[in-house]
Structures are given as C-alpha cells and as structure tokens.
Write a protein that binds this DNA or RNA. Structure first.
Lengths: 135, 135
DNA sequence: CTCCGTGCAAATACTTTGCAAAGCG
DNA sequence: CGCTTTGCAAAGTATTTGCACGGAG
C-alpha cells in the first residue's frame, strides 16, 4: 500500500527548482532560490523533501562535494565531472563504461549491481584559466 | 621548498592501518583500531593526518558514505562497489572504463581531467542474503 | 631553542528531528 | 475531521580548529 501524499506547492517548487537547472544544487541553493517566492520556506522542509524525492527516485544524489550533498533532477543515467577547484558539478554527455560491466561485476562477485556511476575529476574551464593567471 | 616533517610513530601507525585493510575505513575506525595501542591518541590527530595524507597523495578518498568519509590506502586507480544496504565499500578488480575516456572528455569539453572514478552501487552478498530471509 | 606533532575541548558545518500549528481533501 | 506538510528551533553527527604542552634535533 502506497503512502498517500498531499499536494504541496512548496514540494512542487523544490522539484521544479531541481529540474530547471544543471548545476546540481545543494539543499542550501534550493532554499535560497525559492526563498524570495516563498518567504516562509524553511531549510528543514527543503531537506525533508529532497530526502523524500531521493528515496522515491524522483531525483538522485551526485554525492557529497566539499561537505555538501549535490542533487540532480535528471534521473537518466549520465556521467558527471567534478571540479576540484570550485566544486562545480557538470554533466558530461557520452557513454564511458564498457558494455555489460554491471552484469559482469554482478555475476563475477555475487553482488546485486543496481547502478554504475562514472565521475571525472579535475579542473573546469574557468579554474584552468584562473590557474594560468596565477602562474 | 618542501615542508619538513618530523617522524611520528602515530602518523606512521595511521598510514599503516589504512594500508593493512581493504575495508576503506572511516576516521573513526582508524581511531578505534589504534586506540588500544596508542591510548592517548586523539580523534583530531587522526583527522589531521588523514587530511594531510590525502593532500600529499599518500592515500585517497573514496567519497562520503552515509555521512562519513571513506579512505583508501591503495592509491592505484581501481574500481569500487558500495553496498546501499550496509555501507560496505569493496574493491572490484577489473577495468570498466573505455580507453581514452579521460583524454576524450578533456579535449571535447576543455577540461583538465585528472582522474576517473567508477563506482558500482547495489547490495553486497551478505545484504542479498539478509533480504531473502526477510521475504 | 625552535619547530612540528598532539591532546583536548570548543567551534563549525551540514543535516535531521520533535513538536505544535496550518493545510489539503 | 484525519492525515500530511511545514516552520521553527533544538538536537545530532562528522569534521575542523585554537591553543598550550611535549618531544626531537
């Protein structure tokens, strides 16, 4: 039996905020973004709804970058790039994993593999420039 | 100019603890592990040294699992599996990324790609069994 | 004597939670 | 009216930091 969920303007706004950007925001970012339009929004609510969305699969988590969890409204499997300079998280189009990797790992090691994430680390374009100026 | 670093029994013990296990420990685990032999060890010291090792490249971070950072004394690039049931982090032998991915991404998107991590998510053998018992 | 390393405790930073009030159906 | 959602503030958890002391050369 599924838990009934009431309609909620704020919850919808949180989900929309996530789906309308590609910066893979933090909870704080969502909060700041919506605060003007919803002055009585509280950070706790943002966290609560993000956790709920994550569990229901409506959004995914990219992981923790510099101590803050980054969320992604794009649930289609895709690759990320994380800038070690500024902490930016970018989408990287393309397929980089060999085919059947999940199946192979699953069968070889007796694991249930649900997903496979590829993350590139390095410096984004802007941080490369900043570094060149410094030197 | 390199910073001089004094020898330190505790620092060495922390590094050894990391290198002598494949469980990809948390700071707390290292602390608990060494506490019996170094009764006056403090958690702050563990954190300080782990941060230092990480920066110097002596160890790497696997990322944050269930709110705690996981460290790895094996700095050779390799693939990980993270169990969503118990939070275990396992090494997965094998190469799963297509060749030249880093170069391709770097050149296509004007990024400096330093590394590429592959992480499988799912249930480990034990958690699969636990789940079957439950059902 | 001069640094580096450390214990300890306080401070941070992010996230979660309890509770009473407000909202939806 | 019953159950969900929220604001608010307090609590919780992991990590970082300031400071004074201890040790090695």
């Amino acid at each position: 039996m599924e838990k009934k969920q009431n309609f909620s303007r704020k919850r919808e706004a949180i989900l929309n905020a996530l789906r309308s950007t590609t910066i893979h925001p933090t909870a704080e970012w969502v909060y700041q973004k919506l605060k003007p339009e919803y002055p009585d929004l509280s950070l706790g609510t943002v966290y609560r709804n993000l956790a709920q969305f994550k569990q229901s699969g409506a959004i995914i988590s990219v992981g923790v970058v510099n101590g803050q969890e980054r969320y992604d409204g794009n649930t289609h499997p895709h690759t990320h790039f994380i800038c070690s300079g500024c902490g930016a998280v970018l989408d990287v189009p393309g397929e980089y994993v060999r085919e059947n990797s999940a199946t192979l790992v699953s069968e070889t090691y007796h694991l249930e593999v649900d997903s496979c994430d590829v993350v590139f680390h390095g410096l984004c374009t802007q941080c490369i420039e900043k570094q060149q100026i410094k030197n």
